[in-house]
Amino acid sequence: MELIFKWEWLPQLGRGLLLTVELTAACISIGAVLGLLIAIARLYARGPIYWLASAYVQFFRGTPLLVQLFMVHFGLAGWGIRLTPLLSGIIAMGLNTAAYQAEYFRGAIQAVKRGQTMAALSLGMTRGQTIQHVIVPQALRLVLPAWSNELVYMLKYTSIVYLIGLPDLMGIGRTIASNNFRFFEIYAVVALIYLALVLIITFGLRLVEAAIRVPGLGTARQ
């Protein structure tokens, strides 16, 4: 059996790649902001806010991402809330990764030594200032390795959005493959593109880690 790949497929795949990158960037950013807030709520809030934040994490980590995506896209539509596939994808995946990122952030915040808070409070800083200027800057450095993994996972998980009709890298690949009956070649190329992207991201994040590294504040990788 011969392998066939036509170069004219590349620009199409390129458009899909662009969508994949945009989608990943959007949901990882939403997830980072929301995740940090949820982590802070789970650590410092009491009562309903704590309870809500915990239930949120439980729900999004305890149910399949695909179910969440379908709930947002098809489920909400049933209630008259019609979202474009792109918006559904961003919302569902952003909410999902927020739950995971919240747990990473929570672990990192807990890893910041208690004495740091005491020292900040003893200077007259408020709890908010302490979180903002002392705890979060340290926690972000500590969380980076785990967070890098989450980014890589998200990039790969976005490949399910073709199921709600989005022409991402996977979606385009699938269309080309079935139009030309060239499944192995196309999916192999798609896989290689994902792999290249993962390697680039991993390398980029290592540069970031090195740039913000502070002696004595371990972001050490094994």
Partner: peptide, 26 residues
């Protein structure tokens, strides 16, 4: 608290800040 200095047994300098920034933060 801003009027009462506190010096801890294990220093508790802010790990992510230089000596200058530690002193400047407050």
């Amino acid at each position: 608290r801003a009027q009462i200095g506190f010096v801890f047994q294990d220093f508790n300098l802010f790990t992510h800040l230089t000596a200058l920034d530690n002193v400047r933060l407050g």
